[in-house]
Nucleic acid binder design. Structure first.
Lengths: 143, 143
DNA sequence: CTTTGTGCAAACGATTTGCAGGATG
DNA sequence: CATCCTGCAAATCGTTTGCACAAAG
């Protein structure tokens, strides 16, 4: 627990981010949960008992953490942006029904038996987004 | 051209959608373009010369067409929803620089040489979203 | 102390909605 | 002619911003 807290403080410092209670709370909360919460859900979670962080601060902390590469945004739904403290490459499983999102380890994908991602998941399809540079941008950027 | 128009009318009717000039225009526009426009871009395109469809109508037409399975939404960016008249399964390439989106044929993906999607594209990474039903939802739905 | 973060409330952009009039099947 | 669609403007939702005060290094 204390160990965990020290780690967070250390990680933030290593990115030259000031360690404020709010920022700490946002990051700690995200690290502690396996779902992929929206900004709003994080605000809720942090202020459940005692008000600790304003909405604006949570949004700004999320941006800061994202820019530092400590968290990533996940866009699987329209309208909302979800966050994930797992920055290692990995894929996502999304339930069409409840919208629940589950991580799929990176290695599992290529050559994977999609019908057996894990017992209990019924896979109906998948979509791949490849990202990189297109020719036009590539040539306009200094080579 | 006329052939094309008839096809659109026919397709709309086959989904029991009323054929209104606005709805026709939205669908025709989406079928005619290869990019993945936002609702706003479609509004622009349709009203470029003569005002033909209000913003609200375009949004509602897009919803209707989506519900009918004639178009699909593509979420590759935060904040905006893009639309695609290509409802066949396929993947996307997104340029990190200009944001341009290009379709990748479905068959190409598994066992694909990502470095040679097509000459000119520099691939930096990819993400997969698998969708389906999770155990919880699966059991709550009548089996 | 200087810099950066916080909180509030107002501003914003994308999308939705309520409602009256109009077009479609 | 009953139903569904359109257009306008106001409303809503998620997110951002301006600014004065407070806290961190």
């Amino acid at each position: 627990m204390q160990q965990q807290a020290d780690n967070i403080v250390h990680t933030l410092k290593s990115k030259s981010l000031r360690v404020t209670p709010q920022r700490f709370a946002v990051y700690a909360n995200l690290l502690a949960r396996a779902d992929h919460p929206t900004a709003e859900q994080i605000v809720q979670a942090l202020n459940q008992n005692v008000p600790t962080s304003s909405q604006a601060t949570v949004y700004s902390s999320l941006q800061t953490l994202r820019d530092a590469g400590l968290i990533r945004e996940v866009l699987l739904e329209e309208g909302v942006c979800r966050y994930d403290a797992n920055v290692a490459p990995h894929h996502h499983f999304r339930c069409k029904c409840c919208g629940e999102i589950e991580d799929i380890a990176w290695e599992q994908f290529f050559g994977l038996d999609l019908q057996n991602l894990r017992p209990g998941l019924r896979v109906e399809g998948y979509e791949v987004t490849v990202y990189g540079m297109c020719d036009r941008c590539d040539s306009s950027t200094a080579t």
